[in-house]
Simulated scan of single mutants.
Amino acid sequence: MHSPSRSNRAYRNVARVLRPILMVVTKRDWRGTEHLPTDVGFIVASNHMTNVDPVTFAHYLWDNGFAPKILAKASLFKVPVVGAVLRATGQIPVYRNTTAAVDSLAAGVAAIEAGEAVAVFPEGTLTREPDLWPMAGKTGVARLALMTRAPVIPVAQWGAQDLLGRYSKWFKPIPPKKITVVAGPPVDLDDLYGRPLDNVTLREATERVMDAITALLEDVRGEKAPAVRYDMRKAVPPGEKRVGGDHATKPELP
């Protein structure tokens, strides 16, 4: 097949290695490709269940003509080999809780304005929801969307967790696993454009994106997600007791 027109040599070389492997170890159920814009830069936002789903997500986009610029945590860029690949293929490091965070946002905006597909996992990390439903998202995707007014395409993935379980180190390529990836229509954010980028606006936009992803995943799984979305900021880790409000926890003595 032809490589996406926006892919560089490094990206094409990586695809030549990974794509044949993915074609063998997966059975692909890909839907909703008609919703992926072909004439403008856009944001594509997916749920995040396992460390392998960025690869299956990229495979879906690559085979449909896009070389995604994925927002990935900055620590990955320091990992030998992995970091070199990320840099060579033009992925975007996300610097969390630092003054460099604005650089990540600026890089994402620049990529969208250049006509790229910018891939985002709004949850920011693997979901902690016990049954792998999407948890509460971070507001970075909303900020990026409202600053650029670019289309936000929601995507649901299911099946990648069978290749590599959440937190697992054991890759299970045999037998080939069914990977379902479904894109939906753009999330409607029109009424939020022009409003101040305060927490209320950013949370509203984020919730709409997460609602769209969750609805797609409900259809794929044939189940209903929990009525209240899991929120890491409010959850209490096992063995800890909440004191003094939502964010204060105190380890219990054994």
Results as ranks from 00 to 15, higher is better:
A100P: 10
E116P: 11
P122I: 09
P134S: 02
P130D: 00
E204H: 10
G90I: 00
K138Y: 07
P80F: 02
V82H: 13
V82G: 05
T89K: 07
A119M: 04
I174L: 13
V81A: 08
R143E: 11
N199I: 14
G124T: 02
Q157N: 06
V181P: 07
F171D: 09
A110Q: 13
G124N: 06
P93A: 09
T125N: 09
M135G: 09
R208E: 04
T98R: 12
V82Y: 02
A110N: 11
L202R: 10
P80G: 05
P122G: 10
R96I: 07
L146Y: 10
T180Y: 03
R96W: 06
G90T: 08
K138S: 03
G108H: 04
F171K: 08
V187I: 06
R166S: 04
V118R: 06
Y167W: 15
V141N: 08
D103T: 14
P80I: 00
Q161G: 02
Q157K: 07
G137V: 03
V85F: 08
P176T: 00
R87Y: 07
G184I: 00
P154Y: 05
A183L: 07
I92D: 07
E204R: 10
D191G: 12
V102E: 13
R149W: 00
T180H: 03
G90Q: 03
A106N: 12
V85H: 02
Y95A: 12
P173C: 06
D103C: 11
P154F: 01
E116D: 13
I179W: 04
A114S: 15
L202V: 00
L192D: 08
I179S: 13
M135S: 13
V182T: 15
G115I: 01
E113Q: 15
D103Y: 15
R143Q: 15
G124C: 11
G140P: 05
A205W: 00
D131M: 07
A106F: 08
L146D: 08
L189F: 00
T201W: 01
K169M: 13
K169Y: 13
A106D: 15
W170Y: 12
A84C: 14
D190N: 13
S104D: 09
Y95S: 11
D198K: 05
L192V: 01
P122H: 03
P186K: 04
L202C: 04
K138N: 10
R87L: 02
P196S: 02
Q161V: 07
G137Q: 04
D191N: 14
T201C: 01
P154E: 01
L146K: 08
F171C: 09
P173Y: 01
P130Q: 03
G83V: 04
P196D: 08
G108Y: 01
T148V: 06
E113A: 15
P186N: 02
Y193R: 05
T206Q: 09
R87E: 15
V102G: 12
A142S: 12
A101N: 12
R203H: 13
I153Q: 05
Y193S: 06
D188L: 02
D211I: 09
I153W: 01
G159S: 01
T127Q: 06
M147A: 14
D162W: 02
I179C: 11
A183V: 10
A205S: 05
W170T: 15
G90P: 09
V141E: 10
A205P: 03
